[in-house]
Each structure stands twice: as structure tokens, then as C-alpha cells.
Amino acid sequence: MDTRKVIGWNLRRLRVAQGLSQERLALESGIDRSYVGRVERGSENVTVARLEQFAATLGVPVRELFDDPIGDNPPPALAAGRKPKQPRRPRE
């Protein structure tokens, strides 16, 4: 697995383990959400400065983003975002 894919795999694993959406991670890191998605897919050549921002937001050392993935399955996705709307009660 190439380094960009390893970083993306670990970023997603750590983000999902903490229950953060891509949007929340991006917001707290001061980074665009679409950039987070590209990093997780391994299609973005991420800089050291961005790795430091991600690690700081996740509360982990930067080296954890370089750990070799264990197992062949990618980290699971979080449950879908918004709660369903509650039906309105009729007025009495």
C-alpha cells in the first residue's frame, strides 16, 4: 500500500473511532471538508503541516497516521448524519 493510502486509512480509522464526521474533522482542523475526503481516499498529496493539524485535532502523535494498517477491511463508515424529522403534532 502506498504512503498516501496508509495515511488516508489511518486518518479515517482515527476519525471514525472518535465519532467525528469528515465535516467536523475539517471544521476543527481549519481545513476544507472535500480535502479531508481526498486525503482519506489517498488521492491527495498531504503536507506535513496538514498532518500536524489532523493529528492535533485527533489528539494523536503524527506517527500514528503512518502506522501500517491491520487487516484488509477499511474502517467502517459512521451512521448517516441527521436525525429524521419528527411529525408535527396538530394544533388543538
Results as ranks from 00 to 15, higher is better:
residue 1 M to F: 08
residue 1 M to D: 06
residue 1 M to N: 04
residue 3 T to S: 11
residue 3 T to K: 06
residue 3 T to W: 13
residue 3 T to F: 10
residue 4 R to A: 07
residue 6 V to R: 01
residue 6 V to D: 09
residue 6 V to G: 07
residue 7 I to K: 01
residue 7 I to H: 06
residue 8 G to A: 04
residue 8 G to N: 02
residue 15 R to E: 00
residue 15 R to K: 02
residue 15 R to Q: 03
residue 16 V to C: 00
residue 16 V to L: 00
residue 16 V to P: 00
residue 17 A to L: 10
residue 18 Q to E: 15
residue 18 Q to K: 13
residue 21 S to L: 08
residue 22 Q to W: 13
residue 22 Q to H: 08
residue 22 Q to M: 07
residue 22 Q to E: 10
residue 25 L to H: 00
residue 26 A to Y: 02
residue 27 L to M: 06
residue 29 S to F: 15
residue 30 G to H: 15
residue 30 G to F: 14
residue 31 I to Y: 02
residue 31 I to N: 00
residue 32 D to N: 13
residue 32 D to H: 15
residue 32 D to S: 13
residue 33 R to C: 07
residue 33 R to T: 04
residue 34 S to C: 03
residue 34 S to I: 08
residue 34 S to E: 01
residue 35 Y to A: 09
residue 36 V to Y: 01
residue 36 V to R: 00
residue 36 V to C: 03
residue 39 V to L: 04
residue 39 V to A: 01
residue 40 E to V: 03
residue 40 E to G: 06
residue 41 R to A: 04
residue 42 G to N: 08
residue 43 S to H: 00
residue 45 N to V: 04
residue 47 T to P: 06
residue 47 T to R: 14
residue 48 V to D: 13
residue 48 V to K: 12
residue 50 R to I: 11
residue 50 R to W: 11
residue 51 L to V: 09
residue 53 Q to N: 10
residue 54 F to A: 01
residue 54 F to I: 04
residue 55 A to K: 05
residue 55 A to G: 09
residue 56 A to S: 07
residue 56 A to K: 14
residue 58 L to T: 00
residue 58 L to V: 01
residue 59 G to S: 06
residue 60 V to I: 05
residue 61 P to N: 06
residue 62 V to P: 14
residue 63 R to Y: 15
residue 63 R to A: 14
residue 65 L to R: 03
residue 65 L to K: 06
residue 65 L to H: 09
residue 65 L to Q: 07
residue 65 L to C: 13
residue 67 D to G: 10
residue 68 D to E: 14
residue 68 D to C: 06
residue 69 P to I: 04
residue 70 I to H: 09
residue 71 G to H: 05
residue 76 P to A: 07
residue 76 P to Y: 11
residue 76 P to T: 14
residue 77 A to D: 05
residue 77 A to Q: 08
residue 78 L to W: 09
residue 78 L to Q: 01
residue 78 L to H: 03
residue 79 A to R: 15
residue 81 G to L: 12
residue 83 K to V: 11
residue 83 K to I: 07
residue 84 P to Q: 08
residue 84 P to H: 02
residue 85 K to F: 02
residue 85 K to G: 08
residue 85 K to C: 02
residue 86 Q to H: 13
residue 86 Q to P: 11
residue 86 Q to L: 08
residue 87 P to W: 10
residue 87 P to S: 07
residue 89 R to P: 02
residue 89 R to N: 07
residue 90 P to F: 01
residue 90 P to D: 11
residue 91 R to E: 02
residue 92 E to A: 14
residue 92 E to M: 13
residue 92 E to F: 14
